[in-house]
Design a protein around this nucleic acid. Structure first.
Lengths: 213, 213
DNA sequence: TTTTGAAAGTGGTCTGACCACTAATCCTTC
DNA sequence: GAAGGATTAGTGGTCAGACCACTTTCAAAA
């Protein structure tokens, strides 16, 4: 019978250990030799597990010093998978489509909710009028306003994974379109808002900086 | 000076090799010993790189057989993301709402596509008429028909974490409702289909087996 | 022809040995 | 006593070689 691989056990045991001993980002993890002895496996097995976690950016190792729990902001999962998978067009397509699913759902949710968020709303409109308005900020604001934090997180990760289509600054030509979207949302007209949003988004994806710089 | 780690070089060299030699999913990768010799490094270094890729689901290893390039559908993107996303804010409400987002998006996608999937369609309708039709099968079929594999994966995962609301068998009282949904989809009437679907789904969630056993 | 089993090849694991590097310590020197 | 340099213990990085468990292959035996 094919036994489960040990280094995978090590991975989960280490996760448990980190949780139980309340090891925080930046803290030191026991040395490879200690772990090997404690878990009763060879050092090479420990290393296979640690290298896997390191490639994911979950831990950092510094020769001569030790191994440390990494800052969660440094997790590398997304970039890594991207370098291997991005050639698969269907996958990239799926990612963007899934992003769009969450975006339109957010708009729908905002339109369906009672409009008690006016202060936030005004601020968004103001910034749209001002200078230096980043496209991504606009969409992210919508995701936040939807109130579904899980959806927001998924969207955020997909964005990194799929090559951010909302890179760059809002051009003057785009502003009327964005204003229309805001207005439609305020009038709780989800259909129009989504239609306009998709129009804006599809130009960004297809034309990739052709039409608007 | 701290030298760059070799196993990271190996990772990128392997990526290049896979690309240049046009190795396809399912194909065999040279053995660890071959790679070690070809790249002039120790076998353990090769293994650290391979184990990292394996944890990501990019390759599969089978003892006694060899190492193979994995099917892109087995990439662990979603599972790994889940360990980051779902560990803290596992609020049931967000999970279920996000599931619903993907479900309605699937219905929308099916309605928007050309209806060239009639055979699958007929089979679904037949099974709805028969006995022992599991609720989950119905929804999963919709997710599959949408054609977005990433969305399907996310949905599948959420289902596991959120307590499957589609547990159990379709009751006689539910069948007319499901038939309505199918019919609406066939007529590409997304609005009606989604409305009926939400009605069905919300009863399952709220009434949790009150109304229908 | 079918069955068996030995051999070759593969991944999985362990051990022990170096190397390169860091940080703490001790010891000299001022 | 203080400053600076050498020593040393501990760490990760790498390698080589040895088994083990497993799969496939293929030739010999039935």
């Amino acid at each position: 019978m094919n036994q489960p691989k040990r280094y995978l056990n090590i991975v989960s045991e280490m996760r448990d250990m980190i949780r139980e001993q309340n090891i925080l980002p930046g803290d030191r993890i026991p040395s490879e030799r200690e772990l090997a002895e404690k878990l009763a496996v060879g050092r090479s097995t420990i290393r296979e597990a640690l290298r896997s976690l390191e490639l994911l950016g979950l831990i950092e190792t510094r020769r001569g010093e030790g191994t440390f729990l990494a800052d969660p902001r440094k997790h590398r999962l997304v970039e890594l998978l991207a370098t291997f998978i991005l050639q698969d067009n269907k996958t990239l397509e799926d990612v963007r489509e899934t992003m769009c699913i969450h975006e339109t759902a957010a708009i729908q949710a905002i339109c369906a909710s009672d409009a008690s968020k006016l202060p936030v709303w005004e601020s968004l409109r103001d910034r749209l009028g001002g200078h230096e308005f980043i496209r991504e900020d606009f969409v992210r604001e919508l995701m936040v306003l939807s109130g579904n934090r899980l959806s927001l997180k998924i969207w955020f990760l997909l964005k990194q994974y799929g090559g951010n289509p909302y890179d760059g600054e809002v051009m003057p030509e785009e502003r009327p379109l964005l204003k229309n979207i805001l207005q439609a949302i305020e009038q709780q007209d989800a259909e129009t808002a989504i239609r306009d949003f998709k129009a804006w988004s599809s130009v960004l994806i297809k034309g990739e900086n052709e039409q608007w710089q």
